[in-house]
Write a protein that binds this DNA or RNA. Structure first.
Ligand SMILES: [Zn+2]
Ligand SMILES: [Zn+2]
Ligand SMILES: [Zn+2]
Ligand SMILES: [Zn+2]
Lengths: 160, 160
DNA sequence: GGTCGTTATGTTATGATATAACCCTTTAAA
DNA sequence: TTTAAAGGGTTATATCATAACATAACGACC
């Protein structure tokens, strides 16, 4: 288990990203995933920063590197990563972010800084208890939940 | 306080919607809101069902009733309702739903049935404790949070 | 009531996001 | 080595959202 990295603070991000990639490689082996060149590069691009990227931003990068130039190229790679739990979709930003806890079987939740646009993923493992309670009351079976919190990170708050 | 209505079960929805509208009227008075004809109709349209509506679906309805025919007409009315807390945006569905607890100062959370597309809003009042904890760890100040849970309602599960 | 800044509502045009449908290539299984 | 399934490229189009501008209604004030 890696040391906790605060996405909002400056840190050795190369190490931070490599660490995720190392865990991804294990999962790829274990689950016999086909992490093809486009998919691999897409994941690496997402891992370059703690910001969520739009599909078209990813596409630009891929195209510049010799992959296809059309939207489905990016969407397919991104969708695959999301399906495999290696990336998450951040609806509020119409964007995608690499999963920081691949293989950890968690309900993703995100802290999104409105000032610097960085995104931190939290590794909660279960659903919000209040949500669970509500589901029970409604007779509803939750399969997936998405939590996106908007606010401001400490670094940005300090600057203001 | 109105009786709890399970959005997924059949119920006296006319009463359910009227009840919300009654509470909206109080808020409009109290906060001196300008619930103009387009805005009022937009809210009523959202209240017709427990499904989230896309902006263009709302627009179609408004246009048919003599209001403007262009997207900004719908988006402006919807954005206003959201700003005033009378409606919520459901990012996962690219849609909007009337707030079922107007004036109740709550962090909205939604249960979305993948089969019948109905949406139930829960009246949790505070942030997810795990999310709060994560925010604390990250030195992050949460302003708003959105919780959207996908799954299946009891009615639909029974049918399958 | 008339003046005037603010808010509201309509328009046209465009931007941004996402998917459908098709074709050929690669992969891995029989 | 044949063959079905998955991948990756294309063109075209669907869907969602906003920018920019013009006119009309409102409301505070004199
Ligand atoms: Zn990092
Ligand atoms: Zn920040
Ligand atoms: Zn109802
Ligand atoms: Zn249902």
């Amino acid at each position: 288990m890696p040391a906790f990295q605060n996405a909002f603070e400056s840190h050795d991000h190369a190490h931070c990203a490599d660490d995720v990639l190392a865990r991804v490689r294990v999962i790829v082996q274990k689950n016999k995933l086909r992490l093809t060149p486009v998919r691999q590069r897409t994941l690496e691009i997402l891992l370059e920063s703690h910001k969520a990227l739009g599909a078209y931003e990813v596409l630009e990068r891929l195209a510049a590197e010799g992959f296809g130039h059309q939207p489905p190229v990016a969407y397919r790679a991104l969708d695959y990563l999301v399906e495999q739990g290696l990336a998450h979709r951040i609806r509020r930003l119409n964007g995608f972010a690499a999963c920081m806890y691949p293989g950890a079987d968690h309900e993703p939740a995100f802290l999104i800084c409105k000032s610097c646009d960085k995104v931190a993923e939290t590794k909660g493992s279960a659903f919000d208890p209040a949500l669970n309670q509500a589901a029970k009351t409604h007779g509803f079976h939750i399969e997936r939940s998405n939590i996106e919190a908007m606010g401001e990170c400490a670094s940005c708050k300090g600057v203001l």
